[in-house]
Amino acid sequence: MPSLLAVFAHPDDESLFSGGVLARNAAEGSSTAVVTATWAEGTHRGAELAEALRILGLSEKPRMLGYADSRVPESAPGSPRLCDAPLDESIGRLVGHIRQFRPDVVVTHDAYGGLTGHEDHVHTHRVTVLAVQAAGLERLYPEAGAPCQPRALYLATHPHSAVQALGDFAEAGKGMKTVPDEWVTTTVDVRPWLERKWAAVQAHRSEAERGAAPGLLAALPAEVREGILGTEWYIRQELPIPGERTPETELTA
């Protein structure tokens, strides 16, 4: 299995969107790590994140960019909200993690920011796409370490056809942001790792207590929850790997 670095906005996003893939990669002995854009070490959600990653089988401790959640200023005392931080600074911080971990594959939110379109999810997508490109360029962020070009970028998403299964979870799909089914390049059946994924979601206790996604999922029948969490969808973004492309002399579709 390829080494994998997942980059998500908040603690719990990693388990909800990619918990099955993370658990599978870790179980098969692949280097696997998570970067979380908001909240800080020493906060209660930082501790919950560490517990969730332990449950998923990751040996790496959480990597945190240290910005504040756009809706919870106290999530990173003394730091700006992720969406307010200078873009160049955010990209540089993430490039540092990419060059240090040197992943084959990076996973992050899709351009919608997932089903809810949360502004932190959307911005994390933007920062990650730019950082993955910048990480391979030696003259960008030279202070962040030696260049490293991941081989693939995958965007965690949901296709239109998933709306029916998600209906009980999100008011019959009202306002959910999904993509055309043909955009999905990778569909992963994560039911073999579902028990571990669900335990990781439940580790985010404060989110469950306030009625966010972990709490909403806990209130559903087990078979409905399995229908929601048992499949993960991704859009693969091709990246330029030196020597692996046929030279072209025209712009082609």
Score class of each variant (00 low, 15 high):
V105F: 14
A144P: 04
A146M: 09
L87F: 15
H125F: 14
V106T: 10
S79F: 13
R139I: 08
L87Y: 11
G96V: 01
Q100C: 02
H97A: 06
R71T: 13
L82M: 09
H125P: 05
R126W: 10
L82Q: 07
L94V: 08
Y67E: 01
D110V: 09
A76S: 14
V132S: 11
P80C: 06
Y67M: 07
L87P: 07
A85E: 01
E119S: 12
H97C: 01
P147A: 10
F101D: 10
G114A: 04
Q133K: 14
G66F: 01
Y67Q: 10
L130C: 10
A135L: 11
H97Q: 05
R139F: 14
H123N: 09
R81S: 15
S75P: 06
A131C: 10
R99A: 10
R93F: 00
V122I: 15
I91T: 00
F101Y: 12
S75A: 11
D88S: 14
Q133V: 01
D84I: 04
V122E: 13
A144W: 01
G92H: 02
H125W: 14
L130E: 13
M64E: 04
R93Y: 00
V72S: 10
S79K: 15
R126G: 12
P86V: 02
A146W: 01
D120K: 10
Y67T: 01
P77M: 11
P142K: 06
D84P: 02
L65N: 00
I91V: 12
V122P: 03
G92K: 02
I91K: 00
A68M: 08
F101M: 10
Y112K: 07
P73Y: 11
A76F: 03
P147G: 04
R102E: 09
L115A: 15
P77V: 12
P86R: 06
P142C: 12
G113K: 03
E119L: 14
L115D: 15
R71I: 03
T108N: 05
D110F: 07
G145D: 09
V107I: 15
R93Q: 03
G113R: 08
A131E: 06
P80L: 13
A68K: 05
A131R: 04
D104F: 09
V129K: 11
F101R: 05
S70Q: 15
L65D: 00
H121Y: 05
P73V: 04
R102N: 07
V127M: 07
A68F: 06
S70M: 13
D69V: 00
A85F: 01
L130R: 14
L87T: 11
D104M: 06
G113A: 07
L87E: 15
V122W: 08
A76V: 03
Y141V: 01
D88T: 07
I91F: 00
P86I: 03
T128G: 03
E119P: 06
P86W: 05
Y67K: 04
